[in-house]
Amino acid sequence: MSIDVETAARVAKLARIKVEPEALPALAQEFSAILGFIEQLNEVDVEGVEPMTSVTPMRLKRRVDVVTDGNQQEKVLANAPDAREGFFAVPKVVE
């Protein structure tokens, strides 16, 4: 599967990564190369093989339903470019 310039531009936009138009052809080519590698992997017959999710058998770690965190409004907002009255303030986004 080969990725054209338009698809590369779309992927960049969805990922909110700014790519200059002149850089797009090279990016598209890189994508195509990666997908080519995936296609190669696809040739391996994995019929009936369980996906491996960890090297050693591990169980998903659980927590109990107890409040152990929060009450740190100042810290949460510390890195925000703009915060007002306890909220993050961002450029207007409205449907």
Partner: peptide, 15 residues
């Protein structure tokens, strides 16, 4: 939650 009516130019976000 985004609040759009607290400021004419900004949206306020509560996580």
């Amino acid at each position: 939650k985004s609040i759009h009516d607290m400021d004419p130019n900004m949206s306020f976000v509560d996580l």
